[in-house]
């Protein structure tokens, strides 16, 4: 079931209810059974997020190295509150994400599928500027260069 839901989300950027129904039909289940699974996992979205999904880790290792400040900085740069999407639909900011396994490069964030580590306010500005300048990316394709770039 999880691979099927990933295939849908990779194509649409979230799980539209019609697609959930199609997955249910394919797996010979009722849609509520599929919804019960998809809602359990935090990475499946029932609503379409912005084109770039910015998640700042605020668990301990990141917090110890200034994650709160990074989140506040990104909020100012993007002009949105934690959890909101920018008016142009380009960025959704989320600052309640749990440890992403990048504690060695704390503070870190994940944008779309890739991690950016050792963040400073300047580095955040550069990353956001690069994403703004990049041509629109279709969901389901690589969303950025990734790594400790």
């Amino acid at each position: 079931m999880l691979p099927a839901l990933w295939a849908v989300q990779d194509q649409f950027g979230y799980l539209p209810s019609a697609a959930v129904a199609a997955v249910a039909e394919e797996l010979e289940l009722v849609p509520s059974e599929v919804a019960a699974v998809s809602s359990f996992y935090s990475m499946y979205f029932s609503h379409k997020p912005g084109q770039h999904f910015v998640q700042v880790c605020r668990n301990v290792s990141c917090a110890l190295r200034g994650a709160d400040g990074i989140l506040a900085h990104l909020g100012r740069v993007l002009g949105v509150e934690d959890g909101a999407t920018t008016a142009d639909g380009l960025f959704t900011l989320e600052g309640t994400v749990e440890c992403l396994g990048g504690c060695g490069g704390a503070p870190m964030m994940q944008v779309d599928r890739y991690s950016y580590e050792d963040l400073t306010p300047d580095r955040c500005d550069n990353i956001i500027a690069a994403l703004r300048a990049a041509p629109p990316v279709e969901p389901g394709r690589d969303g950025g260069p990734g790594g400790r770039s």
Partner: peptide, 12 residues
């Protein structure tokens, strides 16, 4: 699944 806060060895 490595999701324990503070763990990043399996990823490495």
């Amino acid at each position: 699944d490595e999701s324990e806060p503070g763990c990043f060895k399996d990823r490495y």
